[in-house]
Amino acid sequence: MPPHAFPRGGFLKRTLPLVLAGLAAVSAACLAGAYPAAPGDVLAVLARAAGLAVPAPADPALPTVVMELRLTRALLAYGVGAALAVAGAAFQGVLRNPLADPFTLGVSGGAAFGAALSLTLGLGAALGTSLATPACALLGGGATLAAVLALSRLAGGLRRETVVLSGIVAATFLSALLSLVKALNEESVAGIVFWIMGGFQGKGRAELALFLPCLLLGLAGVGLFVRELDILLLGERQARQLGVAAGRSRLALLGAASLLTAGAVAVSGVIGFVGLIAPHACRRLYGGEHGALLPQAALAGGALLCAADVLARVILPGGAELPVGVVTALLGGPFFCFLLLTGRGGRA
């Protein structure tokens, strides 16, 4: 093996299955649903959208169903899954805590509180846009992150214990505020609960447009500090002795990962397990170097959430939907058990 080859060899060979799984999940999302559509017709719609000269299917509504409803929703689910997985990997690395997930810093609590305020005050109707609630969620998440970072800085620098504790403080406080909002306005309780539980029902282009900038900026931010992320695993002292501006790198990584989280929560609520399981599974299967781990976690998280959303749509008869978080937990839990028990790459 030449000295500059990737340590474990075969990055592409290991990554290709994840890409294929993602394609399969998106294809399934385009094919499945209550609206009657033959697979051949769906493929024809997709082929025409890709610019191929294929005869149009007989049903004139089919292109809208496939492109606007199913494909957009599938891409949103895929992107949210990728964002949560990368954010989870980054939080686990920066905080050096295998139990960390995208919601550890309380960003989800802040986003949920922002959304609850918007729903209670009826901002969506007042402003005439369905994006009022996601935008409030994004602001709430951002404000929470700022507060958590400020608190942990005051409490003795951005050390991982203080960051995690500050996050717990923020999450507890925000959950109390959320209960208060619910108690004060019982009419909005159902809406708030439904929003927080999360999912992609009825989500489309507008949400995708709000989410994409968060995704791209967040991925770029984490990606820029991927080498620092590896080094930070060895602790502050060694990082500084290797020339890493530890505080600045951690701040940038926490900020970028929180942007990914807040964007995801804003458009889809609080979807658990993806951000915990996808990075862990990839780490155990492929190793801990973030240069390889982050793209693999993104692909795995995207495929997982997209597939889970398809199941959430089709599993109940008669067009009713399951919350997608239930499906991710049902899919991810046993898979993670399997990984733990087979012990591949596990500690002795």
């Binding site: 050096r96 695993l233 060895l234 290797l242 890493v244 190793g287 801990g288 170097e289």
Partner: peptide, 19 residues
Amino acid sequence: GENAGELAVRSVVLMGRYP
């Protein structure tokens, strides 16, 4: 000190080149 278990030996030695 801290042992970041999932990293390969080669990756950790390479960190010496970070500066």
